[in-house]
Nucleic acid binder design. Structure first.
Length: 600
DNA sequence: ATAGGGTTAG
């Protein structure tokens, strides 16, 4: 960015500005249709892999019991090594081989102990030694070792353990393989999981396959999953309800409910009976496609398929009714549920409360919340938070605090979202100091601030000219290992711009590249606004050009800011011309610029 | 293997 020449009014300058604009190629079409490929502008926080972990208690218990049974009956000898010791003796083998067997027994005992104590790396080291000496390891501690390493994300070490088992002459069983495969899958290494599947020395079971299907489908690789299904059928392994349900869900997402229904037929024809989850997945698919009425009909047919809908079936439909504004239907469905003795859950009520709050019907939301105990449901933070948010939005802080106290008095403790909501309201209310104070007291209330918490307060500070303090909070969050994102930096850049500290704003802006944070239109707009306010419209236009060259799509406020900048510098006619041109291209709505036009 | 996931920047 070169130093900006001082611009005086005059149409010559405007011509050159205008040419600059045209060179930016943003005018070749509407704002929404730049003719070169644009990287996504929105921040890609997306999902953070936070599916609640399913309790696997039952299966684990069985496994543990089996391990326990072995070690109780034969404290030092597992089936594997006992077999070896016996053959070594009975075949009259050399004493060296016999002793190696004895050493192996001792090593396995130590391996068991290390794994039990969680000393995984020591366990692996011992295992390597055993492998070198030709001792045969027990697969049970080895399987635990694989599971442990996978939990730590160290799939490489887990894979090494599996290799050692395979090459040492011990035979891994299907459980060992399943642990390895599920480890790879959980960490997103589906290709590695498939490689293990291919080289398995024992037949994979339905659990093996389901783990892989789950992982493939989560990553949108339905086609690959269907190929694996073919392989499964060829090997004579029978799919179960889980298998089909996973595949049906993915099919709903990728090819629509129509396709998914065909899979349902296939499932039935193979003698596999769909259960309530299978049907719920389909109902969800219908709702997502906007076919709510079809979903309602399906719900009522379910009993004739030999399967009664459950709370979740109803909740899916309920949510869909609410979001399409069919409030009366939703209330009726709730009545139906109660009548059919399908008790509503907290989720049922939270769906209703959420949508009432969004519509601003806080009174009705409260009456729903207060009725929950009659149905045996206790409101949780997801019940109270939308209500607090509603009060805050209406600037009824008193009522918000009142309800905060009510929730606490009922034993429902505020969570980080509750606090974030309150912090937002405090900042908007000009009580930023209070917000900072509250932020720092969160820890003592057993609730740690998250990225959004800091973003909220940093933005609040930046808005009232306290970017100094905002920058301190930025430091603080980094120390707490929270990674600032584009929202954090946009707030700070905007704050600096507003204060006229444009050079510092630009410096931080350029730092973003090193931090691998991608600037978006909001960040650019903040700088452009700062430059315009300093009457450096020329630099602002340079920056606009830079924005486009970096593949960031300008927004309406990018343009309005620039038009205002021109007007502000006294180039009234130019501003008007540009406004006319942009509005004729549909990039800027004229009525959104009424004040500017009037001021000119 | 299915439902609620709410709160932050122009």
């Amino acid at each position: 960015m070169s130093a900006a020449p001082v611009i005086s009014s005059g149409s010559n300058q405007f011509l050159s500005l205008s040419r600059k604009f045209h060179r930016c190629s943003a005018f070749r079409g509407r704002a929404g249709s730049l003719d070169f490929s644009l990287a996504p502008v929105t921040s890609s926080e997306g999902e953070s892999g936070r599916k609640p972990e399913r309790p696997r208690g039952r299966r684990r218990k069985i496994r543990r019991n089996r391990a326990a049974a072995v070690s109780v009956a034969e404290p030092a000898l597992s089936s594997n090594s006992r077999h070896q010791a016996v053959t070594a003796r009975s075949s009259g083998a050399s004493s060296r081989r016999f002793f190696r067997g004895i050493e192996g027994l001792k090593s396995n005992e130590r391996l068991h102990r290390l794994v039990r104590e969680g000393e995984l790396d020591d366990g692996l080291r011992l295992l390597e030694g055993m492998y070198r000496r030709g001792e045969i390891p027990d697969i049970i501690p080895c399987t635990s070792l694989i599971r442990g390493f996978c939990k730590l994300g160290e799939t490489r070490k887990a894979g090494r353990v599996l290799r050692i088992i395979e090459e040492s002459g011990a035979s891994p069983d299907v459980i060992t393989y399943n642990v390895m495969i599920s480890g790879f899958c959980k960490l997103g290494e589906t290709d590695n999981a498939l490689r293990v599947l291919d080289r398995m020395s024992v037949a994979p079971d339905v659990v093996t396959y389901n783990t892989i299907f789950q992982s493939l489908c989560e990553r949108g690789k339905l086609e690959r999953a269907m190929e694996v299904l073919d392989g499964m059928l060829q090997r004579g392994c029978l799919p179960d309800v889980f298998t089909y349900t996973i595949l049906i869900e993915a099919t709903c997402k990728e090819s629509g409910v129509g396709q998914a229904m065909k899979l349902l037929d296939e499932m039935r024809s193979k003698g596999c009976k769909p259960d309530v989850v299978t049907y719920n997945v389909l109902i969800n698919g219908m709702c997502k496609e906007g076919r709510v009425d079809e979903a309602i009909r399906f719900l009522s047919y379910m009993p004739t398929y030999g399967c009664n809908p459950n709370v979740i079936s109803h909740n899916i439909v309920l949510r869909s009714m609410c979001s399409t504004g069919r409030w009366m239907d939703a209330e009726k469905l709730l009545e139906d549920m109660v009548q059919k003795r399908c008790s509503p859950s907290v989720v049922t009520f939270n769906i209703l409360i959420n949508f009432l709050c969004r519509k601003g019907l806080l009174g009705r939301a409260i009456s729903v919340l207060e009725k929950m105990p009659e149905y045996g449901c206790t409101p949780n933070s997801l019940s109270y938070n939308p209500l607090l948010h509603g009060f805050c939005k209406e600037k009824k802080m008193k009522r918000a605090i009142e309800y905060l106290e009510i929730m606490v008095s009922r034993g429902c403790y505020p969570d980080i979202v509750t606090y974030n909501t309150l912090l937002t309201a405090l900042c908007k209310d000009g009580k930023v100091e209070v917000a900072v104070e509250m932020l720092h007291q969160l820890g003592s209330k057993g609730c740690s601030p998250v990225l959004i918490t800091y973003n909220t307060v940093i933005d609040g500070l930046s808005k009232v000219g306290k970017t100094e303090t905002a920058l301190e909070l930025l430091e603080e969050m980094v120390v707490k290992r929270l990674r600032p994102d584009i929202i954090t930096y946009s707030s700070i850049v905007a704050g600096l711009s507003r204060e006229g500290k444009i050079e510092e704003a630009i410096r931080i802006f350029h730092e973003l590249k090193n931090l691998s944070v991608r600037a978006n239109a909001i960040t650019y707009n903040a700088i452009i606004l700062g430059l315009c306010k300093l009457r450096q419209t020329d630099r602002a236009i340079d920056f606009f050009a830079y924005m486009v060259s970096r593949g960031c799509m300008p927004t309406e406020s990018t343009y309005t800011t620039l038009i205002e900048g021109l007007a502000y510098e006294g180039m009234a006619k130019e501003a008007l011309d540009l406004l006319n041109e942009l509005s004729s291209r549909g990039v800027v709505k004229k009525n959104s610029m009424q004040n500017v036009v009037v001021s000119i």
